[in-house]
Nucleic acid binder design. Structure first.
Lengths: 216, 216
DNA sequence: TAGATTGTTAATCGATTAACAATC
DNA sequence: TAGATTGTTAATCGATTAACAATC
């Protein structure tokens, strides 16, 4: 009965979920597929198609009820319950991400930070509890941490990931350029790499300018 | 003559480009499509197909020459020349990204930082030259800055982007959850949103556990 | 009722996987 | 020569776009 939802659709619906939160805060009660599409940068068609894959969402002919739709997406995708997360590697980037603070507002509680440098653990002041890296499996298990943000140096990425897996982590946001290897099919990893994104932009710019010359 | 290269292919090739750099540093001379695929997390098939879209890359039957392939990809995608970049919003995240420092090693020179808080501009110490936000168009133009990293509060994203566009920026890495609107077809934007990635992970976890229950 | 809007099927488009000849 | 490897065509698979009936 559960249709498989395409990955791009999941990404877009998560985006819609966030936009619905903003609209709710602004006191907006209803929204059309056009408005939602506009906000996330896709067509109205696409929004309706995506939402329909989730099962009954709106009512035929009537606009979407903002708060109702948000709750519904949250239920279907498991976004409503608060989840525990940790951060591995509390260097500059790690600290900045902790303090960024949007997590608490969006259903994530950062309950632990890990680092292999004892010196750093002692000198850093943050509201998050800090532990040495070797305690990752133990703490992840005991605290029931589901998600991890990985901001260690590239060379330590695999080791850190192994420890997280040992603790039973379910998802990792990997800020290192290293692709993590693992043999578990119930672990999910997303990769964020600023340098690669810069390269992609450079490539798009370069290819488009070549295409431009071509057509002259 | 120029075939249009699919977006996913561009992303993967940029990833390969980076891996080739690592291999080169490690003194590796040749590599197979299998090795490259392994490193970036895709099949050997996929690597060969992607590279073939770039035109002649390897030699039929022989392994890829690491340094030759890297230079070749760099030429085709415009990644070899150093590009100037700037950072808009030098709060915690912005500073962390500047200091992250992988940019210089990968062909990007960050030549300017902008912020609307005069106080912050005066107190922050960094190796990057800082300017008030209203000078964005002027400096981007005079310095010939091509790429921008956007780390301002979500509410200021559109205004900052407008100023960048006015200066003639060609690409933006947008760290805010706000989708930027613009009417230029020679501007490219990539979005990075940690919270959304956390949501996507949560959704994948939730859907997979449901699918698991289903099949029991 | 008329105009606007959703949900869903059908049609198009694009990307990935498989297979294999050509080459080292 | 034999085994390994690339480049590219063909086949499959998946995603997006378009269209339209159903409904408010």
């Amino acid at each position: 009965m559960i249709k498989t939802v395409p990955k791009p659709t999941i990404v877009r619906i998560c985006h819609i979920y966030r936009v619905l939160g903003e609209l709710e805060n602004d006191g907006v009660k209803t929204a059309t597929s056009g408005v939602l599409g506009d906000r996330i940068g896709v067509s109205a068609h696409s929004v309706r198609k995506d939402l329909s894959l989730l099962g009954e969402t709106g009512t035929n002919g009537a606009r979407y009820n903002v708060s109702r739709l948000r709750v519904l997406i949250g239920e279907k995708l498991g976004l409503n319950a608060v989840k525990k997360a940790c951060i591995v590697g509390v260097g500059r980037l790690g600290q900045a991400i902790i303090d960024y603070g949007q997590f608490a507002l969006n259903g994530y509680e950062i309950v632990a930070g890990f680092d292999s440098s004892v010196n750093r653990l002692e000198t850093i002041k943050t509201q998050v509890k800090l532990y040495p890296a070797y305690q990752i499996p133990e703490i992840v298990k005991s605290e029931g941490i589901e998600l991890a943000i990985l901001t260690v140096p590239s060379e330590s990425a695999q080791l850190s990931a192994d420890r997280l897996v040992e603790g039973g982590i379910k998802g990792i946001v990997n800020f290192t350029p290293t692709v993590i290897k693992f043999n578990k099919d119930d672990l999910f990893v997303v990769q964020i790499d600023v340098v690669r994104e810069m390269h992609v932009l450079s490539a798009l710019i370069s290819l488009s300018s070549k295409a431009g010359e071509e057509s002259q």
